[in-house]
Amino acid sequence: MIVEKIVTNIENMEKEEIEKHHIEKVYLESADLVKRIQRVTTDHGKEIGIRLKEHRDLVAGDVLYMDDKNLIVIDVQSDDLLVIKPRSIKEMGTIAHQLGNRHLPAQFEGDEMLVQYDYLVEELLQDLQIPFEREERKVKKAFRHIGHSHG
């Protein structure tokens, strides 16, 4: 089977609609969410080719296939993350500036800043005394590096 477009996202479906389907999952690393072309295997052993015509990243919950009885849905494996919890706008600005200088992609959930684990960032947070925790957590979308040069 080759998937060329995303049917919907499971978050946009009614609970009753979801419950009447058998669900197979495709577990991806967050870095694989940016790949428009890839071969994956469901948790039931079914091989699927993904070749998206649309220029978009995959997102947790994307439905690759749906019929009257079955759904095949993207799920994301947990990442090793630093969950940064600044106490003030000054701390947020300080760490955002430092991470920006390192060109590290970040995501935000509520008042938390999420970055992929890096021991140098962990040391920086300790030095700056900015609260953080190291956690295994699922993210909904990929950490995307933004192309940039200082030239």
Rank of each mutant, 00 (worst) to 15 (best):
V40I: 13
V63A: 10
T42L: 09
A31L: 09
D32S: 14
H21A: 03
K53T: 08
D32M: 11
R36F: 01
K25D: 00
E17V: 08
I18H: 00
I48T: 10
L64H: 11
V59L: 12
R39N: 13
S30H: 13
L52I: 04
G49R: 07
Q38G: 04
H44I: 00
T42V: 04
D43W: 05
T41S: 11
K53S: 09
E17A: 12
E16Y: 11
L33Q: 05
D62G: 07
E54R: 13
Q38I: 01
D32I: 00
R56S: 13
E24Q: 15
V40A: 11
K20T: 07
K53A: 10
K35P: 00
E17S: 10
A31G: 05
A60E: 14
A60V: 04
E19V: 00
I50A: 13
G45E: 09
Q38L: 08
V40F: 02
H21L: 06
V63E: 04
H44W: 06
R56L: 13
E47F: 02
I18M: 03
D43M: 04
H21I: 01
D57Q: 05
I18C: 01
I37L: 08
V34E: 14
K35W: 04
E47A: 07
K46V: 03
R36G: 06
I18T: 02
V63K: 10
E24I: 00
I37W: 03
R51K: 10
D43C: 02
G49F: 05
T41Q: 14
E47C: 01
A60T: 03
S30K: 01
G49M: 07
A60F: 05
I48G: 07
R36Q: 13
G61T: 07
D57N: 15
V63Q: 08
G61S: 07
H44K: 15
I50H: 13
R51P: 00
T42Q: 12
G45M: 11
H55S: 12
H55C: 04
V34M: 14
D62C: 10
V63I: 15
L58Q: 12
I37S: 12
I50G: 12
V34P: 00
K25P: 00
A60H: 06
T41P: 00
V34C: 11
E29S: 12
I18F: 00
E17L: 08
K53Q: 05
L28P: 00
K20L: 05
I18D: 00
E19K: 00
E16G: 01
K35G: 04
I48D: 11
E54M: 04
E29T: 02
Y27N: 02
E54C: 06
E54Y: 10
K20E: 12
D32C: 03
I23L: 06
D32K: 11
E24K: 13
K20A: 04
V26T: 03
K53F: 15
H22S: 05
D32A: 14
S30M: 01
D57T: 04
D62P: 08
R56D: 07
L28G: 06
H21F: 03
